[in-house]
Design a protein around this nucleic acid. Structure first.
Lengths: 291, 291
DNA sequence: GTCAATATGTAATAAAGAATACAAATGATG
DNA sequence: CATCATTTGTATTCTTTATTACATATTGAC
């Protein structure tokens, strides 16, 4: 068990009798007792207020407020990720509100997806996506274009040759004209599969291009032509299917790609930031706050 | 184990807009944020100090010190709870693959979001969105436009007068020209908040329009001008923030709106289907739909 | 739209608490 | 046991923080 630095400082910092009293009191009720006031502590330790002040100053906190801040930070650390306890409490008794219900339902969907995941499929996709010789083209159906767009947006920051092919008014086929083995199509197709997409996939496959498919558990017919498929269980309260799991999948992909390409993508991101700054300076740029 | 009474009091005690802001801030950082000062809290929630005082008074703590004492007691209770250790032990065994890890991480994020959720905020938003007299305009930042778009897409099927306002090249302000009390702006703004959006929100507020904000726990400055705010905790493996929780939130909103409008939206959906069929049969660009 | 009721913010006030100066006590060393 | 250094306490000042009183804005009912 690792003790906190603050805890150690208190233990080791006490030299004289009065200070040891203070330290014991603090350690006995660690860390919550540190959250009270100087005078309360002084009284509990049967010493004077200045003694307490001097002690915390000696262990590295010139102002009592600093000391308290450190204590609070420690409390947060000990509580672990902020809401562990409350989370488990909420899980125990199902909440009544539709908002919470929906979120929890999706949480379960994610856990299911994780449980039945096929890492191999995932890896195949990532391997394709990090290959700089391959051009990535993304597209999706009426309601899944969004996903394609999002993945395109993020992937486009990590590597070159990423294109989003909007599925509007037959323009889609433009992307197919010069498709070849050097291309990888990432297709999102969920229930109410669109024939247009299937046609497209067939054409792509014929041209020798790779296909990665994101679909639901019922599996779009495109699966047949795909090199790798990621499926997501769909449990949803909404009249439209849920896109929470797909969103998480996308982020997982991005995370993996980002990891694997590390240096290159890092540098790329930096360059993009540079360019953006130039553009943003026309209007006043966004402030970038960390509290 | 039951959730702490204090936690529940905070969640349920908030009635007005300003009080809801305070409650959100408290719940987001529960319980440690309650250990800071009245003014700090007021600032974080973009309200005045007395509002904070009045709120804690309302939920049963006539003096702020009482409230803090309760919070500290809660911290002690949580730290003392053996469940904590068990839980962290269970959490220790992680799956090995980044894909599964990411999904599970997001599952946790959703649970956290559910735990600290403020159904009141949610309800306020839904109330606005089902009001047929109100025009809904949605917009978002560079990377959150997607979310706006998705919500627009789905909402647009359930009710009329829904518009997506793309944030491109200053065109955004077109949506602001004739904004008034009959308008509700739904804004998505996550870390690396964009000044442009903030300006926009200010303008919107001035015109008397309502504002619903989706943001992260750091809270976009727009929160100050918003009638309702939904926050999402951000834990993410990817170099970009995660949008899983926001996605789930959107779906929850859609589900709720759909429930509340029931008949009207059902009929509307049917009509849309009809029209789509007509359209799909015309172009020769491929038969579009396979059910 | 107008008015009453309720919320919210501003600014002044009161209280609590932290920091400081200085004096008293303690303890070590010759 | 005298002297210096160190520790501790008392009393005071200064800051921060909570609280209250009052003005303004917002909301909801008619």
């Amino acid at each position: 068990m690792s003790t906190s630095p603050l805890f150690e400082r208190i233990r080791k910092g006490a030299r004289s009798t009065a200070e040891r009293k203070v330290a014991s009191v603090l350690l006995e009720g660690y860390p919550t007792r540190a959250l009270s006031t100087v005078e309360a502590l002084a009284k509990q330790a049967s010493v004077s207020a200045p003694t307490v002040l001097r002690f915390v100053a000696k262990i590295g906190y010139p102002r009592f407020a600093d000391f308290q801040a450190a204590a609070i930070a420690d409390v947060e650390r000990q509580l672990g990720s902020p809401l562990n306890n409350i989370r488990s409490a909420v899980q125990a008794e199902k909440p009544d509100h539709i908002y919470q219900q929906t979120l929890l339902l999706q949480a379960e969907a994610l856990q299911t997806a994780a449980a039945q995941a096929m890492p191999v499929e995932f890896d195949v996709i990532v391997d394709l996506l990090i290959n700089p010789k391959i051009t990535i083209k993304l597209l999706g159906g009426r309601y899944s274009q969004n996903l394609a767009q999002r993945l395109a947006l993020q992937l486009g920051q990590l590597r070159p040759s990423v294109f989003f092919a909007p599925l509007t008014l037959g323009f889609t086929y433009d992307a197919l004209v010069d498709a070849g083995p050097q291309d990888c199509f990432v297709i999102f197709d969920y229930r109410r599969y669109q024939a247009e997409l299937l046609n497209f996939a067939r054409g792509a496959k014929r041209s020798g291009a790779r296909i990665c498919l994101f679909t639901d558990t019922w599996r779009s017919p495109i699966a047949e032509y795909s090199d790798a498929v990621l499926t997501s269980p769909d449990s949803s309260t909404s009249p439209f299917g849920s896109r929470v799991v797909p969103t998480a999948q996308i982020e997982a992909i991005v995370a993996a790609v980002s990891l694997r390409t590390h240096d290159r993508s890092r540098e790329r991101l930096a360059r993009i930031e540079e360019l953006r700054k130039l553009d943003d300076d026309a209007p006043s740029s966004g402030k970038d706050e960390a509290e």
